[in-house]
């Protein structure tokens, strides 16, 4: 396991904007956002507006971010909706109180999947937690709960590398 590679244009999510955005991003740009976040822990969630388990876990992820951002947690949301479904994705983000920039995936699926984790089969949802040095510390395929993700986030926040 290594620090994130392949970042094309590192950019930290602009939290101060207080404005929802849904930006196109390659996997390199997603990893650039992870590396550029400057946070102790970064949780990346890959979702889609029509994906039932994604919708189910989503409010917990947003709540977790709000509970722990003061301790150094960053949240990077990546929609895999097709481009003609982005209005649905944006409506869902709005409904869930997301008021910061998020992303939708562009580029080849296989590169996207294997770059985030070769262990990921491509099924949604998928969640990745990175430490402050951009190293992938936790990966989950399938739906999780607030408590499950909180435990993993705390592990990273409390570790030396976090």
């Amino acid at each position: 396991m290594a620090a994130v590679k392949g970042a094309e244009s590192p950019q930290a999510p602009a939290r101060s904007s207080g404005r929802l955005e849904l930006r196109p991003a390659t996997v390199g740009e997603i990893l650039g956002a992870v590396r550029g976040a400057g946070s102790k822990a970064v949780l990346v969630n890959v979702w889609a507006s029509w994906c039932a388990p994604c919708r189910q876990e989503f409010p917990d992820l947003v709540r977790l971010y709000r509970d722990y951002r003061g301790r150094g947690l960053e949240l990077v949301l990546v929609s895999t909706d097709f481009e003609d479904q982005l209005a649905d994705a944006k409506a869902f983000l709005t409904k869930n109180g997301v008021d910061f920039p998020t992303y939708f995936k562009v580029g080849d699926d296989m590169e996207f999947i294997n770059t985030l984790s070769p262990k990921w089969t491509g099924a949604l949802p998928a969640t990745f937690i990175y430490d402050g040095e951009g190293r992938l510390r936790y990966f989950q395929e399938g739906m999780g709960t607030y408590e499950e993700f909180e435990k993993r986030v705390l592990d990273v926040l409390s570790s030396k590398a976090g």
Binding site: M1, A2, A123, D131, G142, E148, A161
Partner: peptide, 15 residues
Amino acid sequence: LAPALSTAQEDAPAS
């Protein structure tokens, strides 16, 4: 020194 990667996947066994 790299910390271990832990994973959790839904109940399907390895492909």
